[in-house]
Design a protein around this nucleic acid. Sequence first.
RNA 1: AUUGCAAACUGGUCUGUCGCUCUGAGCAAUCAGGGAGGAAAGUCCGGGCAACAUAGAGCAUCCUGCUUCCUAACAGGAAGGACCCGAAUACUCGGGGACAGCAAGUGCCACAGAAAAUAAACCGCCUAAUCCUGAUAGUUAUCAGGAUUAGGUAAGGGUGAAAACGUGAGGUAAGAGCUCACGGCUUUGUCGCGUAAUCGGCAUCGCGGUAAACCUCAGGAGUUGAAAAACCAAAUAAACCGGAGCUAUAGGGCUGCUCGCCUAAUCCGGAGGGUAGGUUGAUAGAGGUGAAUGGUGACAUUCAUCCCAGAGAAAUGACAGAUAGUCCCUAAACUUGUUUCGGGAGGAAACAGAACCCGGCUUACACGUUUGCAUUUUUU
RNA 2: CGGGGUGUAGCGUAGCCCGGUAUCGCGCCACAUUUGGGAUGUGGAGGUCGUAGGUUCGAAUCCUGCCACCCCGA
Length: 130
Amino acid sequence: MNTFKKEERLCSKKLIEELLHNGSSFLLYPLKVVWLIKPANEPNPYPTQLVISVAKKRFRRANKRNKVKRLIRESYRINKEEHLYNFLKEQQLTLLLMFSYVGKDIFTYSDLEKKIKLCLHRVVKEIEKR
RNA sequence: AUUGCAAACUGGUCUGUCGCUCUGAGCAAUCAGGGAGGAAAGUCCGGGCAACAUAGAGCAUCCUGCUUCCUAACAGGAAGGACCCGAAUACUCGGGGACAGCAAGUGCCACAGAAAAUAAACCGCCUAAUCCUGAUAGUUAUCAGGAUUAGGUAAGGGUGAAAACGUGAGGUAAGAGCUCACGGCUUUGUCGCGUAAUCGGCAUCGCGGUAAACCUCAGGAGUUGAAAAACCAAAUAAACCGGAGCUAUAGGGCUGCUCGCCUAAUCCGGAGGGUAGGUUGAUAGAGGUGAAUGGUGACAUUCAUCCCAGAGAAAUGACAGAUAGUCCCUAAACUUGUUUCGGGAGGAAACAGAACCCGGCUUACACGUUUGCAUUUUUU
RNA sequence: CGGGGUGUAGCGUAGCCCGGUAUCGCGCCACAUUUGGGAUGUGGAGGUCGUAGGUUCGAAUCCUGCCACCCCGA
């Protein structure tokens, strides 16, 4: 189930605005994470919608921005089921999530995967606190 | 052979696992097939396409600027000409690029310098008048020098990026393209070669530079861009406030102005309400590849063959392995620096990611290959 | 995607149209003033005019190509 299809991406402008205005956030270099919980009305195979953002100011060339986005997407795709989805399905929640890359250098895949795992763990912890 | 610089070419192939996107098949699960570039980049030109009236006239504005050709078109390309630079110094070879017109008019040319452009007189040179000094004769004459005034002069002088075209002769009080001869650049006419630019001959006219100064001449450009535009669906407020207009001389019709044309009772602004979904445009084309023919060439024509991304907050990725080119080691062969056998290293790397589509230009670029130039070393 | 603009001393600016000498303020340095500092006064230093070419005798200025930054339309 290591997929990343259209239903898992957050495209609606309204939801993105809601996430940015009301969401909680933390910084875990080189990523800034913004998240917002919403109650699940009906059972959904994809309980999370994700935005990946890389600023043009950090990476002027489009191919570098694409490279970073692909690395984030790949590591999220591999790890989300184990570290995030199981927890959310137990709690009957849906989550809006945003990864914003604020680093100045491009990480290698193995390094970035570790960071993504840490981010997912921390999101779970923060939700448990509430 | 080594190293460096410049230009051109090239910008790997294959397999597995997990994924993304499009197309087709299927009720579905799923299966099959396609999936970035030479610059996709910068957005500097040109065109297609679309709307605005069928895009029409004049002015303004902007662009281009040797000739002929290629092209859908171009500020692009090809061939040629003249000019400049370098090498050679007889022939020639290589490189360069905004190369119409200062002889239409206007402007500008700092500092220095006499003067920077209808010429002008600082020194100098020459003429005349007056005065002074000296010499000779001797009491007003001659000669020499100096001063002042009036005029002539661009030969000589220093300055400067540039000094009124250069050299020689005549001419003159002294001089001057003032005149003549030769020469340089240039205008116009004419003759000859060439499609033409241009080149050569003859006659004629002129002589500082600057048009990437204003400008003149010739040619060209209507404006706005796919967020253009067409259609479907959903929704709302034909209401409210302020201004213009009252059947045309207003306003509006995506244009800087005028004319002309069309429209027709509405138009502009403010505050506010609603919706922000889909389809087409949009991927078979000035298409690619190969061959033949024509042409010096850019290119064109014909035939054959192929279908090769089409997303929409935006796909082509991650991991692992093999392999070509490349390098190293060992052995053998001979043509003595190449080939072959075996083993090893390294191996998706640089610049960079389609957003309506094409043709160019510009810029970026690892490894490797080719060519040219330079450097160092070795052998002959 | 389309359109427009700006790069000048450590900082903020003038000069560019119409070519010749780069200006002003703050800051910096030295001196004077003060017991000392501040303020004030006098003097001084500091510039590849973003970068690479071209036109010109001569370029911050004119022309062309790049680089960086900013703004606007939606």
